[in-house]
């Protein structure tokens, strides 16, 4: 062996140290603590889903599609979420029609057109701060502007006011995610366009936007699902917390009249002391979560699939 008269050579020492089974309790404890934190987060998610499923699935299996086809009612066995689905859907249409074009437009300006000057920096900082404003403050804005100041056009406490408020709420999110997607498009793509004589708008329309489309789409889906789950602003804009009947109204009447959305129905049901309504609350949560989680999953899959390294 390499030992000379019982003495270790340097090579032996190094070899021994490299192969030594190092048992370090503190490292193990640290890693275990990290795993514990992660598992705890996941356990909360599972508990939440299990709790909702336990109380809600029964109602859904008993009532079937009837639950999503009937309207609000003070009697638990006859109450459904139809009006909430209609309300949420119509407000999402407002978000899609207003927040998406405006958000993408603003992002295109900031990333493609703006020069680095004072005004651009102000707009940029302003948008970042807007994204951090609590949603309930947007509700106050909606109450002051859309319900009171513009009440004549929006019908006051109506789906129009709610939809506009939600659109403004998600606008900064759409701008930020779209700007990120645009920034990820390498400048060589733009330079190629300019090189063959295209104007800036032609480059943006035919090259930059198509390349950034998956990223923009992911951001907009996430913004939409955020808007779908928002409750507080709608309470301020005047979503009904009791019940109302909606018969054969025209679309315009529906847009300007009383309204609820899925989350506001959950809020009003959760406040009922009746245990029947507790089960209904869970059932409504399941309906909401299915829609939102499907949208989020679609966004995440889309992102992972089209994530491109340039």
């Amino acid at each position: 062996m390499a030992t000379r008269a019982g003495k270790l050579t340097t090579a032996d020492v190094v070899r021994r140290n490299l192969h030594k089974k190092t048992f370090d309790a503190r490292s193990l404890a640290f890693e275990a603590a990290l795993i514990l934190m992660l598992l705890l987060s996941l356990a909360i998610l599972i508990t939440l889903l299990a709790d909702v499923a336990r109380t809600g699935l029964e109602v859904l299996s008993e009532r079937g599609t009837d639950f999503v086809q009937t309207g609000l009612s003070p009697i638990a066995s006859r109450a459904g979420v139809f009006q909430g689905i209609v309300g949420s859907f119509l407000m999402m249409a407002f978000v899609g029609l207003i927040a998406f074009p405006m958000g993408i437009g603003a992002a295109v300006y900031l990333e493609e057109y703006a020069t680095d000057n004072r005004l651009t920096r102000i707009i940029d900082v302003n948008i970042r701060n807007l994204a951090g404003v609590p949603s309930v403050v947007y509700g106050i804005l909606g109450l002051a502007v859309f319900v009171e100041a513009l009440g004549g056009a929006t019908g006051g406490r109506s789906i129009i006011s709610g939809g506009l408020t939600l659109a403004i709420l998600v606008l900064p999110i759409v701008i930020i995610t779209s700007a990120e997607a645009l920034r990820a498009v390498p400048s060589s793509i733009r330079e190629a366009g300019f090189g063959v004589g295209a104007t800036r708008w032609e480059v943006v329309r035919s090259h930059v936007l198509p390349s950034a489309a998956p990223g923009i789409l992911t951001g907009t889906i996430l913004a939409l699902s955020r808007a779908l789950g928002e409750t507080a602003p709608l309470l301020l804009v005047g979503a009904v917390t009791g019940f109302f009947t909606s018969g054969d109204q025209t679309l315009v009447e529906q847009l300007r009249g009383d309204f609820v959305s899925l989350p506001t129905i959950i809020f009003s049901w959760a406040r009922q002391p009746d245990t029947d309504f507790q089960a209904l609350t869970s059932a409504a949560i399941i309906v909401l979560l299915v829609v939102i989680l499907l949208a989020n999953a679609a966004a995440i899959i889309l992102r992972n699939r089209y994530e491109r390294k340039w």
């Binding site: 987060s41 998610l45 996430l222 789950g229 959950i266 949560i285 979560l289 989680l293 989020n296 999953a297």
Partner: peptide, 20 residues
């Protein structure tokens, strides 16, 4: 999975906090 947790609306967590 963490991102899904981030997507759960606050009203759902409100009901969870109240009932659980």
């Amino acid at each position: 999975i963490l991102e899904i947790l981030a997507g759960i609306p606050s009203i759902v967590l409100g009901v969870f906090a109240l009932n659980f």
